[in-house]
């Protein structure tokens, strides 16, 4: 045996964990249905709160969409970690001879998948409801970049929040101020695409999203061990 390397590679273990979450969700559909219903309720609330008439809806669409995604995302992040914690499953993962980062990446990939699925359903619905075309390649790229950044930090922070007494309250309080750059950049980039702004006004926002994603995936990778290892 060579040294103390985990028997399962980081990638294999990551895939196994993401597969496990997706399979369980395909069964129960608890998390996705909750996220979706919540997302629709948020849009409904915005419709009346902001009086989304044809004149204003163009300019606020990206803001409404992103706040919806972020709220629904928080719901999913909380739930996804709670299932690991409540039945002691996190211990089960930690007992396995795998790299600790695999737990982070596995959960993050599953969380990202949930968020993208919700977004994929909300998009056509929103398009139909408000008669705006959201299917622009640039906008889809923005959605992916924004979701990656949000999930990267969210998965890390939810694995801490879940251990606290006040966990359901704690996640948004920890996450929102740190994820503010994602929200701002994603809203502005999306608004840029929807409003048909020239690329040079959108590119800086995409860059910001990209930088955010890289920084926080790296940081999460470096510190995750300290969260789960006692």
């Amino acid at each position: 045996m060579s040294g103390d390397a985990p028997i399962t590679s980081l990638w294999q273990a990551t895939r196994a964990i993401a597969w496990k979450d997706l399979t369980a969700e395909r069964r129960s559909r608890e998390l996705l249905s909750a996220m979706l219903v919540f997302a629709l309720l948020v849009i409904l609330a915005f419709n009346f709160a902001l009086d989304l008439d044809p004149k204003t809806r163009g300019s606020v669409a990206s803001g409404v969409l992103w706040v919806t995604f972020i709220f629904a995302g928080t719901l999913g992040l909380n739930r996804s970690m709670a299932t690991e914690k409540d039945r002691g499953c996190l211990d089960g993962l930690l007992l396995a001879p795998i790299d600790r980062s695999a737990i982070y990446f596995g959960k993050a990939i599953a969380n990202l998948a949930f968020m993208l699925i919700v977004e994929a359903i909300v998009f056509p619905l929103y398009s139909v409801l408000y008669n705006v075309n959201l299917f622009l390649p640039g906008l889809l790229l923005t959605v992916v970049l924004g979701s990656v950044g949000y999930v990267a930090v969210g998965t890390l922070l939810s694995s801490m929040a879940v251990q606290a007494r006040t966990r359901d309250m704690l996640l948004p309080i920890l996450l929102f101020p740190v994820a503010l750059p994602v929200l701002i950049a994603a809203v502005k980039a999306s608004a840029g695409y929807l409003g048909g702004l020239p690329m040079e006004e959108i590119i800086p926002w995409l860059n910001l999203l990209g930088v955010y994603d890289v920084i926080f995936i790296t940081v999460a990778f470096m510190v995750f061990d300290f969260i789960v290892e006692e």
């Binding site: 028997i7 399962t8 196994a16 969700e25 069964r27 039945r87 499953c89 089960g92 993962l93 001879p97």
Partner: peptide, 19 residues
């Protein structure tokens, strides 16, 4: 330390992959 939304076999399969 098991996942309620997976079958017994899937649970074991998952851990077999981790190991």
């Amino acid at each position: 330390l098991l996942y309620g939304d997976l079958t017994a076999e899937e649970n074991l399969h998952f851990f077999a992959r981790l190991y």
